[in-house]
Design a protein around this nucleic acid. Structure first.
Lengths: 233, 233
DNA sequence: GCTAGTGATCTGTGATCACAGCTCCGCAGA
DNA sequence: TCTGCGGAGCTGTGATCACAGATCACTAGC
């Protein structure tokens, strides 16, 4: 054992493999909606685009498949799953339940610094939505930042990972719709729910925070479903 | 289109790769506690044991690593993570929240056939626990069957997948403890909570079902933590 | 004109090889 | 007794090759 006990405080530095990088690259494509439901993916083409061999891409894709974010058809084609309306509704209900719960916990246990981070994220999203020419991609990212600032305050790391996976799964559908109908941003639904959530978190009111988050998700889901872009199962 | 319309009723037969099989084999080792926290794993040795090349094992391991069920140390060693007491408590709290919620939904929406399945699973576990010489491994499996019979009745497929992942993560710790202290089975804690949950599901009482499941998880967790087998973080 | 067949090409899956880096063990030096 | 130093034997990671099976454009036959 070294006598320099300060070394014990050093964080374990984690190894970054090419597969990790490939995973993030693909996840970003999905979360930002640049890969939309039904899109196909080729290992070799993706590998060429990333400048690596197929191996790292393979590993990344197999993780995404395990998460249900991608799927490989019996025909050996990798593609973004096309969800039925029922699938999407079940996913939304799961999100409402889990993210609502995370928001409730966040409201009850948030620290001052976490509250500050949430306030800042809310303001950033509000500013973007209120701007003369809102940038969809930027708004999506800021919305995500706000939600995860809230979930980060819930104090349960496993819960945050679960939510991140759910977002990855819902990402393609949500972003596809947002691209087709960017005007929803102006309606201010999300803004109202965000304000409600922020107020509830400030007041340490768990149930109200949960209700606000759930309403945010429900309204976005209903909007998308009302468009009829998803087929029935 | 073929004129034999019956063909439309055929189910999509899903491809089973060696990687899938390897994943299940490893997951079973973890869920049943034959791999315990701290155990190391070698790709080549695992591959040899399974009679395949390293490739399928690699893919399976990378999925388990993504799930947090295995980890690769910076030293390039694959092992079952050793959770701190805090980690385990956070995992348990997450489980209580999520599985409680699933149980509540199950109570409210269960069909008669689902209720029958739950009754049968509860009786099977009770019979095993009451037997003269309870088989730990068998009891663990029956306990799992009962829990998942309940969650299957919640009607949300994404939620079930999430719970399955959480169980895989908690499996090694729980089973390790159960092997060391099989006497807990006789105390009947689990039996009481199971009976409460079953009664609540029969009565379609969501909150009580959630409370019973949460209590089941909490008691098992407290028992394990009281043993002091987990180091602090 | 439409269907069935055919071959070139591309797909994911699996096996194998190459390699940098770690562990372990014995040995030499203080 | 402890420390430092190699070298052999591992490790996971990545690249490459082999292969069965699918796709797609195209043609022959009705």
């Amino acid at each position: 054992m070294s006598s320099i006990s300060v070394l014990a405080e050093l964080p374990q530095l984690k190894r970054r493999t090419l597969a990790d990088t490939a995973y993030e690259a693909l996840a970003d494509l999905l979360a930002s909606g640049r890969l939309t439901p039904g899109d196909r993916l080729s290992l070799r083409q993706s590998a060429a685009a990333l400048g690596v061999s197929v191996m790292p891409v393979r590993e990344a894709v197999s993780r995404l498949v395990a998460d249900g974010v991608l799927e490989v058809a019996p025909t050996r084609a990798i593609r973004v799953p096309v969800m039925t309306a029922q699938d999407f509704r079940a996913l939304a209900e799961t999100r409402m339940a889990i993210e609502g719960m995370a928001a409730a916990r966040a409201a009850e246990r948030r620290s001052e610094s976490e509250l500050t981070a949430i306030r800042r994220a809310e303001a950033a999203f509000r500013a973007e939505a209120a701007s003369a020419q809102p940038d969809s991609a930027r708004a999506v990212r800021l919305n995500r930042d706000l939600h995860f600032a809230i979930y980060a305050a819930c104090g349960l790391a496993p819960l945050q990972e679960i939510i991140a996976r759910l977002w990855l799964k819902a990402g393609p559908v949500i972003n596809l719709d947002l691209r087709a109908h960017p005007e929803r941003l102006r309606h201010g639904y999300a803004l109202r729910r965000h304000a409600e959530a922020l107020a509830a978190i400030e007041a340490r009111d768990g149930p109200v925070a949960a209700a606000a988050l759930a309403a945010d998700i429900r309204e976005a889901t209903d909007f998308i479903l009302s468009r009829g872009g998803l087929r029935d199962g």
